[in-house]
Design a protein around this nucleic acid. Structure first.
Length: 225
DNA sequence: GACCAGGCACATC
DNA sequence: GATGTGCATGGT
């Protein structure tokens, strides 16, 4: 708590309304299947989504976008398929780590993995090498449809610049900021996170464009944002 | 040519 | 526990 809230309680419901008024629905997560959402969540780590799309198209062209087929492919081959997404050797191993978990503990079936309750599912996901808090929560929210809030670099940057959190605030504390003030609603968390990314991409890059930010009249602002 | 992107693990201190 | 570093492509 002490490390998250610096100033006022963030009017998070009002912020959401403002973002929704500005951009409307974001239609996240852009994936055809639950497995594709999971693959995208790993591939988008520190990577622009446009590059991830190319990698996913390659996987689809190779007919490798199923747990069984991705697991059966040599890791080096997977790395070649996902090359456009960057960090391809690392991410190929991470995809393999996930499909290995799925096959060794859940008979290769997402349905069995997703039968776990949310805390257990999050623990299992976090036990996979290469799946950290944001990737796990993206999978929970966008693939498993659980009401968990995804905290990414944009979320942290936006909140820090508005003085609602310290720049080094703890991941889970930031997530709790949202979940404690908003109803546990999958559709709401889905749109909110996507809208924060849209806000971040448009106005809250490392070099911000605060003059046109939709929140400029709306919230306390720090650090020149 | 520099900067940035929907992170994470690991080494080092 | 905190901080630094490697991983890599592609758009602006």
């Amino acid at each position: 708590m002490a490390k998250t809230m610096k100033n006022n309680p963030a009017p998070l419901a009002n912020v959401y309304t403002e973002l929704w008024r500005t951009w409307g629905p974001q239609h996240w997560w852009p994936g055809r299947t639950r497995f594709e959402v999971i693959v995208g969540a790993i591939l988008t780590q520190n990577t622009a989504w446009s590059n991830v799309e190319k990698a996913i198209r390659c996987l689809r062209a190779a007919r490798a976008l199923t747990p069984r087929r991705l697991h059966a492919a040599p890791v080096d081959q997977v790395a070649e398929w996902i090359r456009p997404a960057g960090y391809f050797n690392v991410k190929a191993r991470r995809l393999r780590a996930f499909t290995t978990l799925l096959h060794t503990q859940f008979n290769g079936q997402l349905t069995r993995l997703f039968a776990l309750d949310t805390p257990s599912l999050r623990r299992v996901l976090l036990s996979v090498n290469g799946i950290g808090p944001e990737t796990a929560d993206s999978i929970l929210l966008y693939a498993a449809k659980r009401p968990v809030f995804v905290v990414d670099a944009y979320t942290r940057r936006i909140l820090a610049r508005h003085g609602w959190i310290a720049p080094d605030a703890d991941y889970d504390a930031i997530a709790q900021l949202f979940t404690s003030r908003l109803p546990a609603d999958v559709a709401l968390y889905n749109e909110y996170h996507a809208l924060l990314v849209q806000l971040g991409k448009t106005y809250c890059r490392p070099k911000p464009d605060c003059a046109h930010c939709p929140l400029r009249h709306h919230t306390p602002i720090n650090n020149g944002c």
